[in-house]
Design a protein around this nucleic acid. Structure first.
Length: 744
DNA sequence: ATTTATATCTTTTTT
DNA sequence: AGATATAAAT
């Protein structure tokens, strides 16, 4: 067994697997079989009698953890389930839940997501009378987040002259007070944000030596994947945990560090050598994934960066085909061209949809590709974007669940107290918060005794709400998570409200809530989950990014995602799209952080996802904020050695244009829709466009389908008006965005 | 308190 | 264009 899995490894790989004792750093180039090495290394430990419970493996995404666990299970069997493997956030949330009472929390603490955090900051700004235009919510949160990721406590922050000077320079001198107020409120709400999960773990280990000792003894082997993306807070935790046994293994690639914006610190790699003088370093430089062309093009890009550990990634693979460069007239045409290319390559080389990936810089870019692929009947899936758990209806129900387990959760309370409408307006909510603050009590104390705090007039509806929550709390004590959640969904009136909404969107929302309930049922039915309480479910759910299509049996789909989400994955054919200056590299990155090198590393990550063939594309025009904007090709395109490139001269076809140019659909009267058709170039006469638009079917969520009947092409300015049948009975309202062409 | 009209801002990546 | 905040109307 052992020989079997060592057989396929090259020398440094084998060494990395066998070197289980003492500090080890593996510098793993892209495609060098890193996951394989990690998998075998852990399997090797288990095969040699190490208790899986003594192994801690930290990754950056849930997906990476799940995949590795699966692969280990193939080698060692069901023992793999016992390994402590997961993201930093999920592992330490688990530990914090066990030890919460030590640091002033209860085990039912809530986890605030970014939306909750921002909402809290907004209320704080109001309460402290600070202008939200000078104190931008995003900036404030980012500032607090960086402090916590760098292990700077509130006290230190306020004491530190450097921060004070910086904040005064930025005209936000109250930052220190804000930070304090924010942390106070989180503690009062028995809630932690993402950064607190790490920060508070540090506090826990610092102030409670016995707890630290317990986990130091427990984890004999500590492993960190994607080490280049750890921040100070994460690094200190792992260093402390490994302090006794010194069996720490970190795996990373400085060339793939793409999370500096989140506090990741390449310094960690350099410090690592200082912290562990007898550190062993192994470099994996042979690439098994990609063709020579791709590997060399990637090298030529990354070598433009100054800050890097020199490392020579090479491959014995074949040369492979050249990199295609596609120029499109518009973002929509870019979608069509890529969809066509996928279609053709698929036919020519008899490939599967799942062999293809489209990678972009920002989530917003996915639209054009979705539309083009849908038209060609190519199945696709999108990773990331608005995840399932960020949707309004899901967050609403989750807020009910959160508040049922934790009555101090202020953000959850604000969300649900008047949902469905109970006649509790913003004014009333503000009064509740003020009353609680004055009495030095929690919100729930006020809500559950509303008469004595707010008088009988306001108390009526609040009382109803309080009684409802009390009954939910009782249910939660008696029943498991699923029964409780189903009961809450029904009794709160959430389901009823959604059920009455017969629009397309309303239907989808209703189904989403059902899907959440199903997910809770699965959680309860899973024998691996011992604790079936509502609060246990919430814990597991708050750290999920996306509701991964586990239930989606059809895996043969083209994958679309941001480059960040693509790290660690590989595909035969990869399309990197939107290679335009200011988009990729992102303008923000260049102006606010002046970090072109991180953008270039991002490009490097994208290129090295490809196994067989890479296609790059950019558009000359792109819709942004409703306007057509001219784009310049990205500087990155010029950085690729011409020897590896082949420009694709395929010209766009007219039909493709027009299909995607029906825009600005403006309802005037219920039976009439004003649609504006923009064309990108003066090649198109108004009659040209209108002829093509005729007969198209139009879909609007509020009133179903209609067919284009008549087109008034007399309008100037490359616009045409469209009239079509009214097909629904609801009053026509104004979500123009939902209007789209479904078929021509 | 709630709905509806109008104005303003957005401008990245993710646990 | 679309989301969100604010003002005005109900």
């Amino acid at each position: 067994m052992e020989l079997e899995y060592l057989e396929g490894l090259n020398e440094p790989q084998r060494e990395a697997v066998l070197q289980t004792e003492g500090p080890l750093m593996i510098i793993a180039g892209a495609g060098s079989g890193k996951t394989r090495v990690l998998t075998y290394r852990i399997s090797h430990l288990i095969n040699h009698g190490i208790d899986p419970f003594a192994i801690l493996a930290l990754t950056f995404t849930n997906k990476a953890a799940a995949e590795m666990r699966q692969r280990i299970e193939k080698v060692v069997g069901s023992e793999a389930r016992s390994i402590w493997m997961g993201t930093f956030h999920s592992i330490f949330a688990r530990i914090l839940r066990i030890e919460a009472h030590r640091i002033g929390y209860t085990r039912d603490f809530s986890i605030y997501d970014t939306e909750d955090s921002k909402s809290l900051i907004r209320t704080l700004l109001k309460e402290m009378n600070l202008d939200d235009k000078t104190y931008r919510v995003g900036t404030v949160l980012h500032r607090i987040s960086s402090a916590k990721n760098g292990l700077i406590s509130v006290n230190e922050y306020q004491r530190n002259e450097l921060f004070r000077a910086e904040d005064e320079g930025n005209r936000i001198p109250e930052m220190g007070r804000l930070y304090r107020a924010y942390q106070d409120r989180l503690l009062k709400a028995n809630a932690m944000d993402f950064d607190d999960l790490l920060f508070n773990t540090n506090v826990l280990f610092r102030d409670h030596i016995d707890v630290l000792n317990k986990y130091q003894q427990k984890f004999r082997y500590v492993m960190v994947d994607e080490f280049q993306d750890t921040n100070v807070s994460q690094y200190v935790i792992t260093r402390k945990l490994a302090a006794v046994h010194q069996n720490i293994c970190v795996v990373g690639d400085d060339a793939q560090s793409i999370y500096a914006f989140r506090g990741a610190n390449i310094q960690n790699i350099l410090n690592f050598e200082k912290d562990y003088p007898d550190l062993k370093i192994i470099k994996l430089e042979q690439n098994y994934r990609s063709t020579k062309t791709i590997v060399q093009a990637a090298n030529s890009v990354i070598n433009k960066n100054k800050a890097q550990l020199r490392k020579a990634v090479w491959t014995e693979n074949e040369d492979g085909s050249l990199i295609d460069l596609v120029k499109a007239g518009s973002d929509n045409e870019e979608g069509v061209l890529i969809a066509n290319s996928i279609f053709e390559e698929k036919m020519q080389h008899s490939l599967r949809n799942s062999d293809f990936a489209i990678l972009y810089r920002t989530n917003a870019q996915s639209r054009a590709f979705e539309e083009a692929l849908r038209r060609k009947n190519i199945k696709y899936r999108i990773i990331g974007g608005l995840s399932f758990y960020q949707r309004k209806e899901i967050k609403d129900l989750v807020a009910y669940l959160r508040f049922t387990t934790n009555q101090n959760d202020e953000e959850a309370l604000k969300r649900i107290i008047n949902l469905p409408k109970r006649g509790i307006g913003e004014g009333t909510i503000a009064k509740i918060i003020v009353a609680a603050g004055e009495a030095g009590l929690g919100l729930w104390d006020v809500v559950s005794n509303s008469v004595s705090f707010l008088g009988a007039r306001l108390a009526g509806p609040i009382d109803t709400f309080a009684t409802l929550i009390k009954s939910f709390r009782y249910t939660a004590e008696q029943k498991d998570a699923y029964e409780t959640a189903a009961h809450i969904a029904k009794t709160s009136g959430l389901l009823k409200e959604l059920h009455e909404d017969k629009t397309v969107e309303g239907l989808a929302r209703f189904e989403n809530v059902q899907a959440l309930l199903n997910a809770i049922k699965e959680f309860v039915d899973n024998p691996q989950n011992e604790d079936k309480s509502l609060s246990a479910f919430l814990q597991s759910v708050s750290l999920l990014t996306s509701a991964e299509d586990d239930k989606d049996t059809d895996r043969d789909k083209v994958t679309m995602m941001t480059i960040h989400a693509a790290k660690g994955l590989e595909f035969k054919y990869v399309y990197i799209v939107g290679l335009e200056e200011d988009l990729f590299p992102s303008q923000m990155m260049l102006t606010s952080r002046a970090d072109l090198e991180e953008e270039r590393r991002l490009f490097y990550v994208a290129i090295t996802r490809a196994e067989k063939k890479l296609t790059l594309s950019y558009a000359e025009t792109r819709y942004q904020y409703g306007r057509l904007k001219n784009c310049e090709p990205s500087r990155f395109l010029k950085e690729i050695d011409n020897d590896y490139l082949r420009t694709n001269h395929s010209l766009s076809n007219r039909e493709a244009y027009v299909n995607s140019f029906v825009r600005n659909l403006t309802p005037r009267k219920p039976e009439q829709i004003n649609a504006t058709i923009h064309t990108p170039s003066s090649d198109f006469t108004p009659s040209d466009t209108s002829r093509l638009a005729e007969g198209m079917k139009v879909e609007h969520a509020k009133f179903g389908f209609g067919t284009v009947k008549e087109i008034d092409a007399s309008a100037h300015d490359r616009k045409a008006r469209i009239f079509f049948d009214k097909a629904g009975e609801k009053t026509l309202l104004l979500s123009f965005a939902k209007l789209r062409i479904v078929e021509s």
